[in-house]
Design a protein around this nucleic acid. Structure first.
Length: 195
DNA sequence: TAGAGGATTGAT
DNA sequence: TCAATCCTCTAC
């Protein structure tokens, strides 16, 4: 069951980040189905300095965040890693949820061939690793989450796990906003990225 | 147009 | 603790 598009069109990005935990992210790239349960997310809003589109900053890169909710915002981090976000809120209101880790359920074998050097129990435990394992690249930047290539399904039992909220990772430059408890993960899940 | 730095990762 | 690696943005 796909998530209703209205799911992403709400105004509270942190609530959406919470509710995405337990949902399932899938890709079908290179004709291979890969995916798993979302276990870690972070929220980003134009209202705080951690966000690329802080203060409504619109550039060639952030343009996608101003687009329709449910659109993918994928950018290159540290010259090596594609990080995947889902645009939320209304059009022209730049907010997004970063997917930081999933618990793999489909295509584990093929993920391993994509990431030969990564230990099998850490394949999707981190934002750069999960995109590589699922074959997500910037080619998908700006496409809708309802495509045949990548989609999200509603969660199951895992949705009932306890959610932990804490500070986001790697945004020391954001000043006081780095203290916002906008990182969410499922308590006790082994696939949460470690600090 | 040059230069600095980054929503990461794995090795040392 | 540090290098890999390249795109983006700012300042000149």
């Amino acid at each position: 069951m796909l998530l209703n598009p209205a799911f992403f069109e709400r105004t509270d990005v942190t609530q959406i980040a919470r509710e995405l935990l337990g949902c399932k992210l899938f890709t079908k790239i290179d004709n291979q189905l890969t995916g798993g349960i979302i276990v870690e997310t972070e929220a980003y809003s134009y209202k705080e300095r951690g966000c690329h589109a802080y203060n409504m900053k619109r550039t060639a890169r952030t343009q996608v965040m101003f687009g329709k909710p449910g659109t993918l915002y994928i950018y290159l981090c540290y010259g090596m890693y594609s990080l995947v976000n889902i645009v939320t809120n209304k059009e022209d209101v730049p907010e997004a949820v970063l997917i930081r880790a999933i618990e793999p359920t489909e295509g584990l074998d093929f993920m391993q061939t994509r990431c030969a050097k990564v230990k099998i129990d850490r394949l999707t435990a981190g934002p750069g690793k999960l995109t590589r394992a699922l074959g997500i690249t910037r080619n998908l930047n700006g496409i809708a989450l309802t495509s045949d290539l990548i989609w999200i399904e509603k969660g199951g039992q895992e949705s009932k796990s306890v959610i932990v909220s804490t500070t986001r990772i790697g945004i020391d430059y954001a000043g006081d906003d780095a203290q916002l408890p906008w990182r969410f993960y499922l308590r006790g899940n082994l696939w949460v990225s470690k600090k």
